[in-house]
Design a protein around this nucleic acid. Structure first.
Lengths: 337, 337
DNA sequence: TTGAAAGCGCTACCAC
DNA sequence: GTGGTAGCGCTTTCAA
């Protein structure tokens, strides 16, 4: 190949700048870090030399001596999930404003590899944001001391600050909405059973059913993505429910798709709700009734807490966002059946 | 706060392992890097000590001495765009399989800050993948030598390998499809005018119109997201076109939404096409006819090339993916009008 | 085969 | 105010 991929010249080092400016390394370092008072003529010469050479201190060397990398890591279970994409986005935005870089690690839904992945990421930076919904409490507890400073997303611990969503509240609102429409037999297409967020939805369902004996909710095994929703169609039809609560919007969309293939009309034959209100929920056929979650805020707030920790400040209290339900076309009156 | 966020103990250093195993630093390093032959009894002692101490070499220190960080960076203009999300996903998957970490930098559509952002990211890692559709050729040419090794996404250069999409071909296929349906007056809702991918679409349109004098294509200023598509509805209606080519799926979805609000039926009143075939394009109302782009492959192929460069191998030839059009419900016969 | 020591590039302490 | 110099934690010659 004709195009060389090796940088033409190695980047200049601090000694090059010192030599060119005719001063010591220490002086260059001082000038460039704007610390102590330096003779202004000297400072000028240093700046001039640095500029001419295109010098910038090696972040690697600085990090080693300073003990700080100006980088934070985020571990997510699936970068293909709009929720984690939004978290990453919020995180990146807040981190970069504070001069921090972001290292991203995708565990590809493999809870087994998460501890190692998190540790590896953590060792190359100053702190970590962990989105590990399926990691066991024991593993998390064992891991956290080595990960600190760390912030948790969607799970709580007394060993680290956290930001989460009140899934229980969201599911209660969704159930109230469906009940109001006259639905009495409802299916819940569940998510990953090990996840705290699935447990929270279940708890909400139990609480609601206890208060409303006339309502029956049956669980249909699901998952967290399109395919899981699509595959749950059999179970949903078998349940004879008039409405179904899908674990999240992705599952709801997969279900919508499978239902449409079978000629089942939504919401005339069955109502469907999602969860999260991802940007595309408004554009499905029919548009999805769902519980809106401020997903990007999850990322910014997690970053805020981690940055506080890194700055030696006390992080804000743990926060739990209340979803707000958004009624669209996928839910309708049970009597229409 | 009761929960300390400072790691209980500083991580063990190589000297701790050496002391515990009763050997020199050099020996520990050799054993752990599996290089030269070492006495097996000694090696055992070292491994034992390392395990007991939970030792892992500081990536920072290793990077400094080795001159390699095992990290690659990716710069994207907008992490909220499904296309770049997919690129990131593909990249992360390939990189992690090769033992590389990924640093992600979002320029938030600010072309001005991209050079600095890219440089800052590049300095902390071994190579970079650049998605900078709006950066000027001059800036790119100036930047590239300092960024190398680098791989470009969706723009070509003789100074770096690249992977891209043949937008021209995709737009030609879309136009052929619409023309076949009888459409003669078509609107093109454009993207960012500085982007090479927009220029490629324009070139396709010009070529098509040259060959098909009976077809007229008028340009309506657009953008790259939902809002841009929504805002283009006025222009589209004013153009009296029977079909519209949206810059991408996001723009198409925004347009679909605005059209629906105005009571314009798709595809009865006007046909709409997108571009990219993002995962949600199949779920819009109506489902979107679009040109499918193997967007995750863009990321994996970019990573492959960068990893080749880093391994001192010759990267594969530049690749240009041919979109394949996927006809769904948003396009229909022009005669239905 | 093993250990001592140099050095990756930088910052910060300590004399001057 | 400025310049030596130790040292961040590690790998890798070079001797022994």
């Amino acid at each position: 190949m004709t195009r060389s991929q090796i940088p033409a010249t190695k980047p200049p080092r601090i000694s090059d700048v010192a030599a060119r400016a005719g001063v010591s390394l220490s002086t260059v370092s001082r000038v460039l870090n704007g610390s102590t008072t330096v003779d202004s003529a000297m400072a000028d010469r240093v700046h001039e030399a640095a500029l001419a050479l295109g010098y910038a201190a090696s972040p690697l060397a600085r990090s080693l001596v300073l003990g700080a990398t100006q980088t934070i890591a985020v571990v997510v279970p699936d970068l293909g999930n709009p929720v984690f994409q939004a978290v990453l986005r919020g995180l990146t935005s807040t981190a970069s404003r504070a001069g921090y870089h972001v290292l991203v690690a995708d565990s590809f839904e493999s809870a087994d590899e998460e501890p190692e992945l998190a540790m590896a990421a953590r060792r190359r930076c100053d702190g970590i944001v962990l989105c590990a919904p399926r990691m066991s409490d024991e593993t998390l507890a064992r891991l956290l001391p080595a990960l600190r400073p760390a912030v948790l997303v969607n799970r709580s611990s007394d060993a680290a600050p956290s930001v989460s969503v009140d899934y229980r509240s969201g599911i209660l609102q969704l159930l109230a909405h469906l009940t109001e429409l006259g639905h009495r037999t409802i299916s819940y297409v569940s998510g990953a059973s090990a996840a705290e967020s699935d447990a929270a939805r279940r708890a909400g369902i139990r609480a609601f059913v206890d208060d409303h004996p006339e309502v029956t909710v049956r669980e249909v095994p699901g998952g967290v993505d399109f395919a899981a929703g699509h595959g749950a169609a059999d179970g949903v039809q078998a349940s004879e429910a008039t409405a179904v609560l899908a674990f999240n919007d992705l599952v709801a969309m997969g279900l919508l798709s499978a239902l449409s293939e079978r000629g089942v009309r939504v919401p005339q034959d069955v109502s469907v709700t999602g969860f999260d209100d991802i940007p595309f929920a408004a554009y499905t056929t029919p548009p999805l009734t769902t519980a809106s979650v401020p997903v990007e805020a999850l990322g910014t707030q997690a970053a805020d807490r981690l940055l506080a920790l890194l700055a030696g400040r006390a992080p804000d209290e743990d926060v739990s966002f209340e979803p707000v339900i958004t009624v669209r076309g996928s839910t309708g009156d049970a009597l229409q059946r």
